[in-house]
């Protein structure tokens, strides 16, 4: 099945309440067994390993929708399944269950296409200009041996840009926007600091004005002051561009700064969701309470 892609629009799509990204009952099982392996796992059993098959339930029954211009947070400790959710949406991993829709990616006839059912080549094509990812490890999102400009040239040339001067100008514009000094633009990313690498990743992610950007622990591993600068930048960029974003983090301060709405994940399930400030003020689920408590120290 090949997706029939419509010209992209911002804001309202198709006259209905706009949804940039919709995830329905997403599940990922590592190891043997189908849905029956899920039984006996999750927060109420305090385990992710299937008692019947030994499979690890990466995530299960995860649903959410993100509106254009909205940033949604997913918070949880490591192993909670939040990165699995992100990788299944991005296509870095194959999902075991559920569906993912991206606005404007339709089947012939106009019904929304399920990304999970698309051919791998079609999924990769979406990554060029509709769905971008910023990884925790810059080496995953960038070719470190290539210059910052060259890394941005990649999605541009993939999208058909063939004019050297314009590619360079676009790369320079993006790098200025993400506050990378232009005199470093031609240096291999390998020579950059961690914070600078993340800024290059952001610039690359924005290269073709995607509808949705997925940010996986974008500031984890950076020094606090550097992380604060990158967070400021991300917040400004999201506000400026109106791109829908999913921010995955274990850190409430990141989620608090970037998102208005968030999900809490534990043992592969969503245990609570709501407005970020309310959730921080008054967490309902015991696990959320524990997380918030720890964050408030």
């Amino acid at each position: 099945m090949s997706p029939h892609t419509q010209p992209r629009q911002r804001g309202m799509i198709g006259g209905t309440a706009a949804t940039a990204l919709a995830v329905e009952r997403l599940g990922k099982i590592y190891g043997p067994g189908g849905p029956e392996a899920v039984e006996g796992t999750g927060p109420e059993f305090a385990r992710s390993v299937s008692p019947s098959t030994g499979a690890v339930i990466g995530c299960w029954d995860v649903s959410f929708a993100v509106a254009p211009g909205e940033a949604l947070g997913i918070i949880g400790e490591s192993g909670s399944g939040k990165s699995t959710v992100m990788r299944c949406i991005a296509g870095d991993q194959s999902a075991s269950a559920g569906s993912v829709n991206l606005a404007g990616v339709d089947r012939p006839g106009g019904t929304p296409a399920d990304l999970l059912q698309l051919a791998p080549s079609d999924r990769r094509a979406l990554r060029i200009d509709r769905l971008s990812v910023v990884y925790q490890d810059p080496a995953e999102g960038l070719d470190l041996r290539v210059s910052a400009g060259g890394n941005i040239a990649e999605p541009l040339t993939a999208a058909g840009w063939r004019h050297f001067g314009r590619i360079r100008q676009r790369a320079a514009d993006l790098l200025s926007r993400t506050e990378v000094p232009l005199d470093r633009m031609d240096d291999p990313v390998l020579t950059y600091s961690g914070g600078m690498r993340q800024r290059v990743q952001l610039a690359k992610a924005l290269a073709n004005d995607p509808q949705v950007v997925l940010l996986d622990e974008p500031t984890t591993g950076l020094d606090a002051s550097v992380a604060a600068g990158v967070l400021d930048l991300i917040r400004d960029l999201l506000e400026e561009t109106g791109i829908a974003a999913v921010v995955v983090s274990h850190d409430f301060s990141v989620i608090e700064m970037l998102t208005r709405r968030c999900l809490v994940m534990h043992h592969g399930r969503v245990v609570e969701e709501g407005l970020t400030d309310q959730l921080l003020e008054d967490p309902q689920h015991p696990y959320s309470q524990r997380l918030v408590g720890a964050a408030r120290g």
Binding site: R124, V146, G149, G150, A153, E154, A158, D186
Partner: peptide
């Protein structure tokens, strides 16, 4: 094989870009 199958030649274009830059 994948790159040829999908006509994904972006890496080649990047190498040309880098060549001119360097």
């Amino acid at each position: 094989r994948r790159m040829h199958a999908e006509a994904d030649y972006a890496k080649m274009w990047v190498s040309l870009y880098e060549d001119i830059v360097r």
